[in-house]
Design a protein around this nucleic acid. Sequence first.
DNA 1: TGCGCGGTGAAAGATTTCATGCATAGAGTC
DNA 2: GACTCTATGCATGAAATCTTTCACCGCGCA
Lengths: 284, 284
Amino acid sequence: MNESAAVGLPTERVRDLFHGVRLTPTQRRIAHCLVQHAAAVSYLSAAEVAELAGVSQPSVTRFAIALGHDGYPALRRRLRELAAGSTGGGSDDGNELQQAVRAEMANLGRLAGELADRSRIAEAGRLLAASRPLPVLGLRAAAPLAAYFAYFAAKVHPDVRVLDDGGSLLTDRLEQAAAAGATALLAFVLPRYPRETFDVLREARATGLTVVAITDSPVSPAADHATLVLPAAVGTGLVFDLHTAPMTLAMVVLQAICDAAPADTQARLEAFESSAARRQLFLG
Amino acid sequence: MNESAAVGLPTERVRDLFHGVRLTPTQRRIAHCLVQHAAAVSYLSAAEVAELAGVSQPSVTRFAIALGHDGYPALRRRLRELAAGSTGGGSDDGNELQQAVRAEMANLGRLAGELADRSRIAEAGRLLAASRPLPVLGLRAAAPLAAYFAYFAAKVHPDVRVLDDGGSLLTDRLEQAAAAGATALLAFVLPRYPRETFDVLREARATGLTVVAITDSPVSPAADHATLVLPAAVGTGLVFDLHTAPMTLAMVVLQAICDAAPADTQARLEAFESSAARRQLFLG
DNA sequence: TGCGCGGTGAAAGATTTCATGCATAGAGTC
DNA sequence: GACTCTATGCATGAAATCTTTCACCGCGCA
């Protein structure tokens, strides 16, 4: 085996195994599984990998042969070699892109630390789950995050309303939500803090809504306007801001909402699934 | 910070397996062999260990049973756990939310590894920077990501067009973009892979557009429809998917676009800044 | 010297793991 | 709408791996 230089993570080298080979959908599932569980797979039997990937055991054997090996054990040996070679990898700071990504990992690390105490998150979940409708605010840079949260939240909550475009209509929509029975508002308040966001927050509190704010710091300008502040740092290593930690926190809050009303959410999820299947929305 | 109950190096913990058990000379040879090749042995069969230790294969089985296991495979499983525990650290730390966030950190870590080679990213930047207009595709769950990218991209590119709502209008918009001079398309293709996304991708390639796809795996269904595939894993530790790694990759691509035409982007950024200041868009 | 006994390896039996033939389902084609 | 062709899972046969049985060897002892 010439096998390229020692550069690259195990993931990348595992990926090279598939290079240029045409794979069937089932084989792609197996490949995906290998990439994700690269280290563990080198211990597993063909049947175990099959279960992990949700395919039949013969498919795993055929996959190994499709990649040019004599059989599954040969593929597994190959994976073991890759795993062994990866343990002694060198480490340096890397280029500026890598540094930015690593800084983002650190942000997530701090978030993980805060999540050790679940009580604040759980309370956010209770507050938001109880609000019908549930308005979600995110303006300008925060608008995609609000939409992202709302997309998934709508699968477990009967009435999620995104407030993501500014202007005079914004206040209308907030008042309509309050009139319809909303009791809480989830707000994404991120740099560079659009002025309009705070106008809405003031309005919301005046209307009696409980404001849960996902923002970039416990001392952000949102703190003055929110009942419950959930901080998650924004990455600043690239030209534009990275919102991975707030995004993660958003999904954690959504999980808390699900936990607050498990039976309810489960029923809605199943309804969505059957509808999606009927409409063949997705591949696979 | 770290776990852990079981203190000590793997070697030491392997020794603990023999603790207080009376061993025959042959078994001692096997034990010695285990300590020396602890990591490798977890891959080997009983016969291979036997050869390594210079004893017969049944002796290895008997050794495993003498240590209180059901048989040699059980002992090997035990060794694997020890080996895994020493390399990967305790995976049982923290609650399920923290585990999900840490899994997301791992996704970012893999992404950082891939970014060691900047050539693919740089090429994506060149391809996309050159396209006027620049269509950005993201349907359903991927729509917020497309909007997020487009929000920032619009600050450095004169004509970014988001394609994020499905239906017949989608094709119209794509054709309009192509007619207006687009040469490339940035597509976010994430689980659960809406069918419609692939219709658009086929159409785009038929129109002659270069397709750059940000997707969750190098072997995702997007790979067949894209000129350039940029993978970033999706987090699956919570009820709904986490898109932090694709989001990060999106901003890395945007940075590459800026790098591809630095003077141009700098001028646009300054124009936006002065406009924002004039309109007092933001706090501070 | 003869006898018993624990330890060991060789070979046979049992079990798990892997590979292949076959029928079916689904996509694409005419 | 019928047909072909690929892909997939099931069932079965083949192979590897593991366990058990059994005979041998060396040692201590009467």
